[in-house]
């Protein structure tokens, strides 16, 4: 087997994995928009197979067991005139881990902060998710508060903390795996090699290959 093929395969796998993880984090982590709320309402919304992943599961949403249900929405406009529509749904208790169950209150707060273009009241909307019109999916608003102005700078503390924690977990998993390999697998492999003199070349090569997938050290 050519070494080039493995290099390409490895890098393709790594890039796909990186894009998947980056997209996943971009979808899940909170983001802040500074907008003006123009309208709040609810409407019957049909959730299909292509976009149900971007909506709450039925038992944490507003109705059970149907694909058409009433969902709250918040219409907004940015300072530059572009618009954004948020949905406002409970998240439930598993994923995404916002544990949000105050959608009604949030809708009332958003309605209370409504303003028109002549008298704008700028609002920070914390949300996660994407607005993709082709799939009819909307970011889910998590919190609203009044902004000091349309140019307010927001430091994404939650994202910083979450990313640092994730990095820590990844480093710990690698260290635990390395320790497991060094203390458990390698001594066992050494025993096998001693017992089976003829097979050990192949076994060593095989384990070396597997190990190469998981670590770059040595």
């Amino acid at each position: 087997m050519g070494g080039k093929f493995w290099t390409y395969a490895k890098w393709t796998l790594r890039i796909v994995l990186f894009l998947f993880v980056a997209g996943f984090l971009h979808y899940t982590l909170p983001q802040h928009d500074i907008v003006r709320i123009t309208n709040t309402y609810n409407r019957l919304t049909t959730v299909g197979t292509e976009n149900s992943w971007a909506y709450s599961s039925p038992d944490s949403g507003t109705a059970e067991g149907t694909t058409t249900r009433d969902i709250r929405f918040v219409d907004t406009a940015f300072a530059n005139g572009k618009v954004m529509v948020y949905r406002n749904e409970d998240t439930g208790w598993v994923w995404p881990p916002y544990f949000k169950y105050d959608s009604s209150n949030l809708q009332a707060e958003a309605t209370n902060l409504k303003s028109d273009a002549a008298n704008p009241k700028w609002v920070v909307v914390t949300h996660y998710g994407w607005r993709l019109p082709i799939l009819s999916i909307y970011p889910n608003a998590v919190a609203v508060r009044e902004a000091s102005g349309p140019d307010e700078q927001i430091i994404p503390w939650v994202n910083i903390v979450v990313l640092v924690l994730l990095l820590f977990v990844v480093v710990m998993i690698r260290r635990m795996w390395a320790q497991f390999w060094e203390r458990t697998v390698e001594p066992a492999a050494a025993n096998v090699e001693e017992a089976w003199d003829g097979v050990e070349n192949r076994a060593g090569g095989f384990w070396g290959q597997i190990k190469g997938w998981f670590s770059r050290k040595k």
């Binding site: 881990p97 916002y98 544990f99 949000k100 169950y101 105050d102 998590v142 919190a143």
Partner: peptide
């Protein structure tokens, strides 16, 4: 973390 998130999201 779950308790703090729940509090910040729903009671702030």
């Amino acid at each position: 973390i779950v308790a703090i998130t729940t509090y910040l999201v729903n009671y702030q």
